[in-house]
Amino acid sequence: MTTTRVAVVEKILSANDRLAEENRARLDQHGVFGLNIMAAPGAGKTSTILRTITALAPQITIGVVEGDTAAVTIDADKVIAAGMPAVQINTGGECHLDAVMLSGALNELPLDQIDLLIVENVGNLICPAAFTLGTHANVLISSVAEGDDKPYKYPNIYRGINALIINKIDLLPYVEYNLDYFKRGVELLNPGVVTFPISCRTGEGVDEWTKWLLEKVTSD
């Protein structure tokens, strides 16, 4: 019997990354632009998705994958009521979606009819940042009600995003929130990331966001 050292040098989440690449190829093949939406619980992920559907429905077809830790279809029901196909993923307590789960959901969607696939990740600012899904863009929603220190406390999620939505700006007069302090933190983590201050309640700023998104979808 001999003891030997075997070099491995393999990324721990490499299996997930590989499957994410397969998801990406599949989306590309069907001409679907994939968008991963991440946020803390209650930041307004579903509200933003519904606003986005209302704004873009005349021009494109949007499919939605709803990730939830519990076996509830509250969010998926809202999307279906808005007239778009939706699939619910119940993670069974897991804190994030991963590429395997998304792969299963893709099987259930009419990909040929969809232009934009929105994936609503599990409400969490830590875990979704570590698991790639194969989507083309990552968007984070941060609501002003959560406080202005979130970039400093959850740096990883801010680093991997392509756009940032600041939701609930209609609450700014009522909460302790220093927008400059928040933006400084974001700038340290993700220099120059495009930012959309919006209010899903009043509709303020939603046009700028959906215009940016539509351009991404149609140019890809």
């Binding site: 050292r5 491995v8 393999e10």
Partner: peptide, 29 residues
């Protein structure tokens, strides 16, 4: 997280610290 200690710019990039891999194993064969 802090800005650049030299020029205080906020335009910074992570060059190390994201490692997350299995480097090697020791086995009896």
């Amino acid at each position: 997280l802090t800005d650049c200690p030299n020029c205080h710019s906020a335009r910074i990039k992570v060059v190390a610290g994201e490692e997350f891999y299995l480097d090697s194993i020791e086995v009896e064969a």
